[in-house]
């Protein structure tokens, strides 16, 4: 690890994302600050809380008419905002990777999965095609694909959602990034598959000592999976809390998110409804 222990992997200060619309500017993210080490951090909020925009802003992927500004947006002390687009592309591939909700839109539909993996490998390392093929197959095994040869020669549309997401994870981990941003990586998957994919992600992130930002609307899921949770509401972080101390959460919004899910064997009383107060943001 090159940087001194005091420099966090990712440091974000006063990040703002604005959208210019006909009716004036809308702030999707309104000045948030946080830092991520080599740990798992969850960002939780309802839709419209700005959680996904935060993930995109870190990678400088906010598209016009939106724009992101921050006092500081640094990866191991390197300011990302001033990098040229070319160098930023290198950062996106090699140091920060992102997994989206639906793998269907992230894989090239007309290229076999294997070839996409091999090409991704060859971009990052100078290796022969045969070596790349071998590596790609091991990687598919690493993400618990039982029949890697079949998946290797399949087209993305021939894979189920769970398989597709595993391939995405394998692909994103090729360059051994320092930080992985996962935006609702399992919400498009079946419940039983969700757990398997999370298990794979968990193991890989731990083994490689990567940092992970896990973006989700499901507080329970995030709390079982992450070390620390940031709760976002209307573009602000309303509470930051260690995942294992979530039951001690103070903020009514966090408590609301925690209690609103039905439970098996729970009472039939109406579910507690989330209170919302614009003054919190």
């Amino acid at each position: 690890m090159s940087a001194s222990p005091s420099t966090p992997l990712l440091d974000v200060r006063d990040l703002k994302v604005r959208f210019a619309t006909r009716r004036g500017a809308i702030e999707a993210v309104r000045g948030i600050s946080f830092s991520v080490g080599r740990e798992r951090v969850g960002i939780v909020g309802e839709s419209g809380s700005g959680k996904s925009m935060t993930g995109r802003a870190i990678l400088r992927l906010v598209r016009s008419p939106g724009s992101a500004t921050a006092e500081r947006l640094a990866l191991e002390g390197m300011e990302l905002q001033t990098l040229s687009e070319r160098r930023m592309r290198a950062v996106r591939g090699q140091r920060i990777a992102m997994i989206m909700q639906d793998p269907k839109y992230s894989l090239n539909p007309v290229m076999r999965v294997g070839r996409q993996l091999v090409e991704a490998l060859k971009v990052h390392e100078r290796i022969s095609s045969r070596e790349a093929t071998r590596r790609a197959l091991t990687m598919l095994e690493e993400v618990q694909i039982r029949d890697p040869k079949r998946v290797f020669s399949a087209y993305p549309h021939e894979l189920s959602g769970g398989m597709g997401q595993r391939v995405m994870i394998a692909m994103m981990l090729i360059p051994r990034p320092d930080l992985l941003i996962a935006d609702e990586p399992t919400s498009a998957l079946d419940v039983t598959v969700q757990l398997e994919v999370l298990k794979i992600l968990d193991a890989l992130v731990r083994e490689r000592g990567m940092g992970l930002i896990f973006i989700s609307h499901d507080l329970k899921l995030v709390s079982t999976f992450c070390d620390r949770v940031l709760v976002m509401y209307l573009g602000r972080i309303v509470e930051e809390i260690a995942a294992d101390r979530l039951h001690e959460a103070r903020h009514p919004y966090t408590r609301g998110l925690l209690n609103c899910l039905p439970e098996i064997g729970g009472s039939r009383e109406p579910l507690p409804v989330l209170e919302r107060d614009e003054a919190w943001a």
């Binding site: 309802e46 839709s47 609307h217 499901d218 507080l219 609301g256 998110l257 609103c260 899910l261 039905p262 039939r268 109406p270 579910l271 507690p272 409804v273 989330l274």
Partner: peptide, 15 residues
């Protein structure tokens, strides 16, 4: 729907 909105809709359906 979001988990928080789900609670509202489920309550509505129950009522």
């Amino acid at each position: 729907l979001d988990a928080s909105i789900q609670a509202e809709v489920l309550n509505l359906l129950q009522r």
